[in-house]
Simulated scan of single mutants.
Amino acid sequence: MMDIDSKIWHITMPDKNIFLELGFSLVEAERYLAESQKKIDEELKLKQRKANDNPQSSSK
Rank of each mutant, 00 (worst) to 15 (best):
M2D: 02
M2V: 04
M2N: 04
M2C: 06
M2P: 05
I4P: 01
D5Q: 00
S6L: 03
S6V: 00
S6T: 00
S6C: 02
K7A: 15
I8T: 07
W9K: 11
W9C: 12
W9Y: 08
W9S: 09
W9E: 15
H10G: 08
H10Y: 09
H10P: 02
I11W: 01
T12R: 07
T12G: 10
T12C: 14
M13T: 12
M13R: 10
M13I: 07
P14W: 03
D15F: 01
D15L: 00
K16F: 02
N17C: 04
N17V: 01
N17Y: 01
I18F: 01
I18S: 07
I18R: 02
F19G: 02
F19T: 04
F19N: 04
L20E: 07
E21H: 09
E21G: 02
E21Y: 09
E21L: 11
E21V: 03
L22H: 10
L22F: 03
G23I: 07
G23D: 13
G23A: 11
F24N: 09
F24S: 06
S25K: 04
S25E: 08
L26P: 10
V27K: 13
V27C: 08
E28R: 06
E28Q: 12
A29Y: 00
E30H: 09
E30P: 01
E30W: 02
R31F: 15
R31D: 15
R31A: 10
R31Q: 06
R31G: 11
R31Y: 12
Y32D: 13
Y32G: 06
L33Y: 11
A34M: 04
E35G: 04
E35H: 03
E35Q: 12
E35D: 15
S36V: 13
S36A: 08
S36I: 06
S36T: 11
S36F: 12
Q37A: 07
Q37S: 06
K38I: 07
K38R: 05
K38Y: 05
K38L: 13
K39V: 01
K39E: 10
K39W: 07
I40W: 09
I40A: 12
D41Q: 15
E42H: 06
E42R: 14
E43I: 03
E43V: 06
L44I: 12
L44M: 12
L44F: 01
L44D: 11
K45C: 05
K45D: 14
K45L: 13
L46I: 05
L46P: 00
L46Q: 11
L46C: 02
K47Q: 14
Q48H: 01
Q48R: 10
Q48I: 07
R49M: 12
R49P: 00
R49D: 14
R49T: 11
K50E: 07
K50Y: 01
K50F: 01
K50L: 05
A51I: 14
A51T: 13
A51W: 03
N52E: 15
D53Q: 13
N54R: 08
N54Y: 10
P55F: 09
Q56S: 04
S57C: 14
S57D: 06
S57G: 08
S57W: 12
S58N: 14
S59T: 02
K60M: 15
